[in-house]
């Protein structure tokens, strides 16, 4: 196993969690897109109700 230096280890620990952000925003983006599709594409397209 390659050993990393203390400096590299600190750099990894202090760097922003890019992978987490990508995952989080992908899931959120997908959910928002699905909600908007259902609201505007399915619900409102069937006629406004009041």
């Amino acid at each position: 196993m390659n050993k990393i230096s203390e400096e590299e280890r600190q750099k990894i620990l202090e760097s922003p969690p890019v992978g987490t952000w990508i995952l989080m925003l992908s899931v959120a983006g997908g959910m928002v897109a699905a909600w908007l599709f259902l609201y505007y594409g399915v619900f409102l397209s069937r006629g406004i109700i009041n």
């Binding site: 987490t20 989080m24 959120a28 928002v32």
Partner: peptide, 13 residues
């Protein structure tokens, strides 16, 4: 901090 980010994204949605 990560949990805070998740919560903020959920609340934002």
């Amino acid at each position: 901090p990560l949990e805070r980010k998740w919560v903020l994204v959920s609340l934002g949605m």
